[in-house]
Design a protein around this nucleic acid. Sequence first.
DNA 1: AAGTCGGGGCG
DNA 2: CGCCCAGACTT
Length: 365
Amino acid sequence: MTDGFADILIRWYADNHRRLPWRETSDPYLIWLSEVILQQTRVAQGLDYFRRFVARFPDVRSLAEAPQDEVLKLWQGLGYYSRARSLHTAAKDIMARFGGRFPEDYEAVRSLCGVGDYTAAAICSFAYELPYAAVDGNVYRVLSRVYDVDLPVDDAAGKRYFAELAQSLLDPVRPGLQNQATMEFGALQCVPQRPDCGACPLADRCLAQAHGTVGRRPVKRGKAAVRPRYFNYLCIRCDGTLLLRQRTEKDIWRNLYEFPLIETDAETEFDALQRTSAWKAWFGGERRMRIGERTAMPRHVLSHRIIYACFQEIELERIPDSLSGFLRVPEAELDRYAVSRLTERYLERRRAAGVNVKVGKLFDS
DNA sequence: AAGTCGGGGCG
DNA sequence: CGCCCAGACTT
């Protein structure tokens, strides 16, 4: 009669869940891999990446022994690239500290690079049936509505509150199943926008629905506006090669590759770009230069990270010493390098147009 | 406690 | 365009 929270969710799950590859295994390595891929990422977006990673890296050892550039290349387009670096670091760590055997207790799992509270709980409950509540964005939403909690879910007090609430609701007999069920319920039924509360099995006990606050749960603290950034890429061609470099600095797209970049603090026309110190440092005395196409004015390309970027084609007859720090990559080999989606899209356009780079006027400084 | 890190899909 | 997504880490 008095079905508990867990019973209702588990029954709902039995009737409604999606069949996903990482749910067909209890291999902690595969579960770990899926959890990292799915951090801040929708299932639909991560699914193919998971398949490709499993095919290429079927176990910890194969991942640990791969070069980082290959891991990043396979991760290309997924975003949050620190996940790929951490995944690789952790794989090597598992080889070193645990002889290649995936750790089996919570503290050891939690100690792996890139594994936080959520991921450790997910791995331990799914793979080992250990009683740790996994609290992700779905769980925050479900709990904040069912219990009509108005604490912000993204500050320390709120996180602690929801973690304790979820743990107190966890049936230790089947923690993995309950965690899966709660998250799937949040993903499919208790969705962020316009949930179908009329069809909800928890409707009779959902306090937010009783109070009419479903649309305002979960509560989040406001976030500061993000500073726009302006990237001016230079596709410098010389003798069939393009200049490329790896982003090693601590910033977005770390360890991915890109064209020589001049970042400015506002939209910058081409002639203004030539007056920047970066330009002068690279091309100061260079006269044998042809200026090709430039993508439409600093066009807002990326999503709400707010990066405005343009690409400028340039052809040189020789590479000056000031540019000798860059890699020289034959155009046919560009796709071996992991690049941002922004750069990937430009490369696609560029290739489709057939190495256009129609050289325009001769530039003389 | 607040910032940073991608990219895609949705209304 | 704003919001959100199987979050973790740095400052």
